[in-house]
């Protein structure tokens, strides 16, 4: 019960802390950029439809760049910011369960990234709908458009939320294991997720991106398969995606909790 209380306290403080624009302006900029681009294209382009704008921007920018970067910035800060700022001493000299602290913070960060990126994805779709041949979602009916039928908005939203879950918790755990989670996270984002996921063959299954694509492929409209690099692999079933990404998230939480229990953070004076 005490652990749950601590977990909740940390989740709430981490979430509120992340929301503060002073701390997270960078994350907001990254998240909103594709929406601005979508709006600019939607308002100015002549030969393009809303579906195309939403799919291209969410696939090439949002899922492959913005989601990993935003979750990296938010996830790695769960522990490493405390270490960098040398405030972790205050936490580790209190009678709290360290795993509860880690899980609470990680879930707080997850809440923030899921909310922000989810909102960013919806905003992107909304901005895209201003394209002259706005197919889905129709700006007049948004947000009451029949999303489930359009094969664009819901798949994007689902993939973004799943990506937030997997990446945020992975990067949070990374922050427990290493003093330089940002560097390793960037290497992972660009070298593994950016490179491996675009190679043909079964290597793709080693990346989170592959499962996000699988999710979209299972729920998305025909237009998705025309995107470059999208149809390079046999996709997982939605149940398989949920199972694997859920396992990955749980594993990240478990490993982070296990490591932080006895880890000492040596701060220089």
């Amino acid at each position: 019960m005490q652990n749950l209380r601590i977990l909740g306290l940390f989740a709430r403080t981490q979430f509120l802390r992340s929301l503060a624009p002073r701390q997270s302006w960078l994350v907001y900029v990254f998240t909103l950029l594709p929406s601005f681009v979508a709006l600019a294209i939607g308002l100015n382009a002549r030969r393009i439809d809303a579906e195309g704008v939403a799919m291209h921007l969410s696939w090439f920018l949002f899922l492959q760049v913005v989601v990993p970067l935003v979750t990296l910035l938010a996830g790695q800060a769960v522990i490493s910011r405390e270490v960098d700022d040398r405030t972790i001493t205050y936490l580790f000299s209190r009678p709290i369960s360290r795993p509860a602290m880690f899980v609470g913070r990680a879930l707080g960060a997850l809440g923030f990234t899921a909310l922000l990126l989810g909102a960013g994805a919806l905003l992107l779709c909304y901005a895209a709908s201003f394209a002259p041949q706005g197919l889905v979602p129709n700006p007049e009916r948004f947000p009451l458009a029949p999303w489930s039928g359009d094969g664009v908005v819901l798949p994007i939203l689902g993939a973004v939320l799943l990506g937030s879950l997997a990446y945020t918790l992975m990067f949070a755990a990374l922050g427990v294991f290493t003093r330089h989670p940002m560097i390793l996270g960037l290497l992972y984002t660009f070298a593994v997720e950016g490179f491996l996921s675009n190679l043909p063959g079964s290597n793709q299954a080693l990346t989170v991106q592959y499962y996000l694509r699988s999710w979209i492929a299972a729920h998305g409209a025909q237009g998705w398969s025309k995107l470059e690099g999208f149809g390079l692999a046999d996709f997982q079933s939605p149940a398989g995606v949920l199972l694997r990404l859920g396992l990955l998230a749980a594993l990240a939480l478990a490993l982070g909790s296990w490591r932080i229990r006895r880890k000492e953070f040596v701060l220089s004076s």
Binding site: L26, F30, R47
Partner: peptide
Amino acid sequence: AQRKTHALAVSLGCFALLGGLGSMLARLVH
């Protein structure tokens, strides 16, 4: 930036975002 790690992420992120954006738009609107 306020921290080196943030500057690093933004630097790589900017080049990646702009690169992705440029090539994607070039393809999208021909």
